[in-house]
């Protein structure tokens, strides 16, 4: 009966998100201005090439406008600006990572997508305080070490927050 099905499904999705048990997690890593960053793989919906957007009035510079994503309208954020990197006009080489949290969908403009990283939970570290101030730290939830390389994990809640309305 249907009532038996629910817990099973739950177990299944759990299994999918962490294939090697509870202690690992996966990240999609990408490049912004030569540095690697990442987001949790379960937040990623799809990846697509840059295409021209429809710009919105009265938006902060990191809002690149909206796109039609199979019938729903999705706003595109320039992650390069959010992370404090230089942001030349996007072109065909740029990539949009579509992420979804809390039922909301947003596209993040990055330079290129690089890899899927599987890590032990223990490898995730907090972001050290940034004494200079600066925006970058505020946009990251944590950092991870992938081999020799440090990857900053993007705080999607912050990035997706459209900010005050006026």
């Amino acid at each position: 009966m249907s009532s038996n099905a629910a817990p099973l499904e739950e177990a299944d999705t759990h299994h999918l998100t962490s294939p090697e048990g509870d202690d690992t997690c996966q990240f999609l890593s990408f490049v912004v201005d030569g540095r690697p960053y990442g987001v949790r793989i379960q937040d990623v919906r799809e990846i697509r090439q840059w295409m021209r957007t429809t710009s919105l009035p009265n938006q902060p510079p990191h809002n690149l406008g909206v796109l039609n994503l199979r019938g729903s309208i999705v706003s595109i954020q320039d992650l390069r600006i959010r992370l404090g990197a230089p942001a030349p006009a996007p072109d065909d080489t740029n990539v949009i990572v579509i992420v979804q949290t809390d039922g909301r969908r947003v596209g993040l403009l990055v330079d290129a997508v690089s890899d899927i990283l599987t890590l032990q939970r223990a490898d995730i570290q907090p972001v050290p305080p940034n004494r200079g101030g600066g925006d970058e730290r505020a946009m990251l939830t944590s950092i991870i070490m992938s081999g020799e390389v440090m990857v900053g994990i993007v705080d999607l809640d912050r990035v997706m927050d459209p900010g005050l309305s006026e």
């Binding site: 021209r52 957007t53 429809t54 919105l56 009035p57 009265n58 938006q59 406008g65 909206v66 796109l67 039609n68 019938g71 729903s72 309208i73 999705v74 706003s75 909301r104 969908r105 947003v106 459209p162 309305s165 006026e166």
Partner: peptide, 26 residues
């Protein structure tokens, strides 16, 4: 189509629609 669903309402724009060529028009 509303902008609120994935973003937020924007003053002066009551929504958006998708044109025949797939582009979004406010």
């Amino acid at each position: 189509k509303g902008l609120e669903e994935n973003y937020r309402a924007i003053a002066g724009v009551s929504g958006a629609t998708i044109l025949g060529d797939g582009r979004v028009a406010l």
